[in-house]
Nucleic acid binder design. Structure first.
Length: 362
DNA sequence: AATACCTACAACCGCCTTTCG
DNA sequence: TCGAAAGGCGGTTGTAGGTAT
């Protein structure tokens, strides 16, 4: 227990990238003698390296059966599938991918697959749709409002905070948009996933100190709620199968978020102006909000009400800002001069096929 | 052209488990 | 049975090359 590093006793061993000469010495020695004891190998092979370093160099790079080059789609899918069941057990995953090393798979995961999943709105840790987008809302809104407070005591760059809050709000809004958009089509396909309605319900219901006023339920056909099976999943963020729309970057989420945060509700057809927070999007950019999905779960769902807004789904490995850079904002279906109907090309069937106006608040 | 920033990946570090005398 | 040595694993860091400003 508490063993010292294997090479600590020899401070002169070389570290850093291997040279071709060192590689040759190592390969030649192993071909002749096998690796035997890794600790004794460097001395026997004439290498000024730690045995552990030799082992890693051999197993991760020099071994003849290592397959190099890009990962195929099949390999990608297999890694994702295995990671979903095994977690970060890279060595176990590597045993299923012939010729790939655990280190290579781990690196590929961290540099490619993790980002890929994030861009699709999937938590790479849980392999389930991300919930932290909504969970972080209260704190981020608080940060955004710092600029309006006459505190003046903190030596913080308020503009920087605003920028951060703006960026986060865009992402949060994306999450809301996707939740709302998904809710319209979800009954057709409802694979296992998080309970988004639970999240929205707990987040938005007035009883839970949420964001929306109770009266917003008026006009919603609650009898159709049975169509919701509690397992809506998020669609990929970069779904661009819909007609071209103005880029999201041309509108501001401030108004919408402010309304959500205030608990005053958003009347149907209500055109929200942006500058509530004083640093919003372009002047005159308006958005019209559809009704949020009705709260399905009562305020006794404490998951989203805990201090700090952390849900049990959230992990340190996926912060609110993760994947922000890779998000394709231009694919978010929000129209600056119209309403969100463009993003809801399909009728809101889960509420009422005959009268889409029920999607809007009175 | 110079610099800053980003990305990918090889390599290292430290802890845990297994093996062996 | 115990403890040290060795191997293995996952997380993290360093760096080279590419790209943007």
């Amino acid at each position: 227990m508490g063993r010292s590093p294997c090479c600590e006793q020899d401070a002169d061993v070389k570290k850093g990238p291997w040279t071709p000469e060192e590689d040759k010495l190592l390969v030649d020695y192993i071909h002749k003698h096998g690796h035997g004891s890794w600790r004794r190998l460097p001395k026997n092979a004439g290498l000024n390296r730690c045995g552990k370093s030799c082992r890693l160099r051999w197993t991760n790079y020099l071994r003849p059966d290592i397959k190099r080059g890009d990962f195929s789609k099949a390999e990608e899918d297999l890694i994702i599938q295995l990671h979903a069941t095994l977690g970060n057990k890279w060595s176990s995953i590597a045993t299923k991918l012939k010729g790939r090393t655990d280190n290579e798979i781990k690196n590929y995961w961290n540099t490619h697959l993790r980002k890929k999943l994030l861009s699709q709105g999937i938590d790479p840790v849980t392999h389930r749709p991300r919930t932290d987008l909504l969970a972080g809302l209260p704190n981020l809104l608080a940060a955004a409002n710092l600029g309006g407070a006459a505190t003046g005591q903190l030596p913080l760059d308020i503009n920087a905070i605003k920028l951060q809050a703006d960026a986060a709000k865009f992402q949060i809004l994306q999450g809301l948009v996707r939740v709302l958009a998904t809710a319209t089509a979800a009954p057709a396909a409802a694979p296992a996933g998080i309970d988004l309605m639970t999240i929205l319900g707990a987040t938005l219901t007035p009883n839970s100190g949420g964001l929306l006023g109770q009266h917003q339920l008026a006009g919603v056909d609650l009898s159709r709620l049975g169509q919701y099976d509690g397992n809506y999943s998020l669609p990929p963020l970069t779904n661009s199968s819909q007609p071209t729309r103005p880029p999201m970057s041309s509108m501001s989420p401030d108004g919408l978020l402010e309304r959500f945060a205030s608990g005053t509700g958003v009347p149907s057809g209500d055109v929200l102006s942006s500058p509530e927070l004083g640093h919003g999007g372009p002047r005159g950019s308006n958005i019209t909000t559809p009704v949020a999905p009705p709260p399905m779960v009562a305020a006794d769902d404490h998951q989203c009400n805990t201090p700090g807004g952390m849900s049990s789904e959230q992990t340190p490995a996926s912060s609110t800002f993760d994947g922000l850079a890779s998000l394709n904002l231009d694919d978010v279906d929000i129209n600056i001069d119209g309403c969100w109907t463009n993003m809801l090309l399909e009728p809101p069937v889960w509420l009422n096929n005959n009268n889409s106006s029920e999607m809007y608040l009175p």
